[in-house]
Simulated scan of single mutants.
Amino acid sequence: MIEAAVFAPSGTERHSADTRSALADAKAAPGTTWVRVTGDDPTELSLVTDVFDVHALSVEDVRSGVRPKTEDYPNHVFVLAKTASLRRGETTFEDEVRTEPVGLFVGPDWLVTMTTDEVDAVSRVWEGTLGEDARILRAGPDFAAYRVLDRLVDDYFLLLDDVETTIETIEEGVLDGPDPEVLEALNAVRRDLLSFRKVLWPTREAVGTLARGDVDEVRTATEKYYRDVYDHLVELVDLTETYRDLARGARDIYQNTVAQSTNEVMKTLTVVATVLLPLTFVVGVYGMNFSSMPELEWAYGYHAVMLGMALVSLVLVAYFRRHGWL
């Protein structure tokens, strides 16, 4: 689906963009033109490619969802960003980071956004330009592109809020004792943070190119807005690394808890084996049944041996308790 919005003195107007001539008229209209392409229909993509003279490889990058980047062309700059949201599963360890590519082609007086599916951040800015926030297009295509990127980055914070809540829940579970589900949830969180990190780092570099004034399509007056987005991305990178450290620390606590539990079991088994060792020795000695053993003929020999073994056991147990081993 192709939609066009043009900022005119009377306000933002919708223009038909279902044919080549209509799309060309929208591009040539005075003011700032924003063409929004949703879906991957080859005919529509080819139409936009021809009218706005955008490179076919850039369109293919949007469809394939490669890593975020910024590329400068003679008549426009291409920015590929990505959405990032946490798709919930039935359990915590089934959560995963879901991404959608968002392509922005910024020209001298036009902006083309391409998405393979409906993207909430793009839709909200789009509806704003057609409503009360018409200044978005009045400020130029570079400012409209900034607003889209800013929305995407704001949604990144929501994802990290969810991850933080999950980590806090996991930390509480770790302290309750070893649980295989807690370990699976920890691994899932670390995997999500790694996936999110792969989105953040190239996005930061892509926005940094726009913030430094390396492209002609971004005016000096708009660079400060991109610098603000860049600062948010730096903060997000720091938060991601912090949460990765928290997840790593929770895993270490879990492993220490498991090791401590194992040590407790081993200590108990060692105490039991130590108590049984002298008893086994006594039973083994008298189990030889040599005829020359004087105790074999003693009427109270059995009772004496059992009493002796009980006393030895009691002495050993008292000793272990005194030293805090039981």
Rank of each mutant, 00 (worst) to 15 (best):
Y226R: 09
Y226Q: 08
Y226P: 00
Y226N: 08
R227Q: 12
D228C: 05
D228T: 13
V229A: 15
V229G: 09
V229L: 12
Y230F: 14
Y230D: 03
Y230I: 04
D231K: 07
D231L: 08
H232M: 13
L233A: 08
V234N: 02
V234T: 09
L236A: 14
L236M: 13
L236E: 03
V237H: 03
V237Q: 07
V237D: 06
V237N: 01
D238Q: 03
L239D: 00
L239T: 03
T240V: 14
T240Y: 05
E241C: 05
E241T: 05
T242M: 13
T242K: 12
T242F: 14
Y243I: 04
Y243D: 02
R244Y: 11
R244M: 15
R244D: 15
L246T: 02
A247H: 01
R248N: 14
R248H: 08
G249M: 10
G249L: 13
G249Q: 11
A250I: 04
A250M: 05
A250R: 03
A250L: 12
R251S: 11
R251H: 09
R251M: 15
D252E: 13
D252F: 10
D252Y: 10
I253C: 01
I253F: 15
I253H: 12
Y254F: 13
Q255F: 14
Q255R: 14
Q255K: 09
N256H: 08
T257C: 06
T257W: 07
A259D: 12
Q260T: 02
S261E: 13
S261T: 10
